[in-house]
Design a protein around this nucleic acid. Sequence first.
DNA 1: GGGAACCCTGTAGCCGGTATAGAGTCAAGC
DNA 2: GCTTGACTCTATACCGGCTACAGGGTTCCC
Lengths: 145, 145
Amino acid sequence: MRIGELARRAGVDVQTVRYYEREGLLEAPGRTPSGYRAYGPAHLERLRFVRHCRSLDIPLADIRRVLALADSRSVACDEVNRLVDVHLARVRERRAALERLERQLAALRSQCASGHRIADCGILEELIHAAQGEACACHAEGERR
Amino acid sequence: MRIGELARRAGVDVQTVRYYEREGLLEAPGRTPSGYRAYGPAHLERLRFVRHCRSLDIPLADIRRVLALADSRSVACDEVNRLVDVHLARVRERRAALERLERQLAALRSQCASGHRIADCGILEELIHAAQGEACACHAEGERR
DNA sequence: GGGAACCCTGTAGCCGGTATAGAGTCAAGC
DNA sequence: GCTTGACTCTATACCGGCTACAGGGTTCCC
C-alpha cells in the first residue's frame, strides 16, 4: 500500500508518516520503481501503535524507547513500567496545575461584568494589582515544566 | 536600570526580556551611549504584568491585545471579558482531557507489575491491543486542540 | 493527450522561550 | 595601564510534534 492509504487507515496526515520515518519511529519501507514508498501490514500496525501512544500524550522519544524494548522481547520490562510511571506523574502534575489555573481564571472573570469602560475594568485592575504584588522569583523557577 | 537587574527583579531570564521586546510586548527602552538598554520603573511594572498573565497561561498574542486595550482606557472592556472567557474555556477543556488521560494511564499502569519479561508485559500487550482495535479516524480530528 | 489525484524532496512556520557563538563594555584589583 | 570577570550586544539555531507550502514527477481515467 502507498503512503496515502497507510495514512488514511491509521487516521494521520501523510506528512506525519514521513515525519515519523525521519524521526526513526517507523521503519523506512521499500520503494516502487518510481520511488513511491510501499508499505505492508506491519507498518500499519506499528503506525497505529505509535498513534495510540500519542493519544496517551506519550512523547515521541519515549515511544521510540518502548518500540526498541518491544522488539527485544526477552528483556525485563521494568523500564516500560518506569516510563509509564514517569509519564503518569507528569500528567497528574499538569492536571493539578490546570485545576489551580482554572480556579484563578474563574475568580478573575468574576471581577468584571459586561459594559464597563476599560478604566473601571475589574479584571485589568486585578491583573495589574496581582502583578505588582509579585515577588521576584515566584514564577521564575520550578513552576514551569 | 540595565537588563540584568530588570530581569532579576521580574524573575525572568535576560533572553526573555529581549524576546518580549522583539515580540512587541515590552516597549524598546532608551540606550546608554555604549548601547546598553536602560529601563525605568514603568518597564518593570509592564514586564511583571506580562509575567503574571503568562503565569495564568494566557498566550502572548492575547497579552499583547490586553496591553493595547489597557493603554486606551476609555474603550468598553467587553473584549477583555471575552478574551478571559475564551481562555477559561480552553483551560477547562484541556483539564478535562488530562483527567481522561490520567484515568487511562492509571488503568494501563495496573496491567503490569515489576519483574516480568517483556514478552509477558501487560502494558505492552494492552498498548498493542488497543492500537489494533482503533478505527481509522478516532484520533485524527477533533481530539487535538 | 489532458486533467485530477496522488507522490516525491526540501524548506519554513507555529509557540514561548532557551542556548550558543562571537564580540564589545565596564568596574575592580594589581 | 592591564588583566580579569561580570555584564551586555546581535544574530542564529534549537526544542516538540507536527503542518504547510513550493516545485516538481507519476499514475490513472476519460
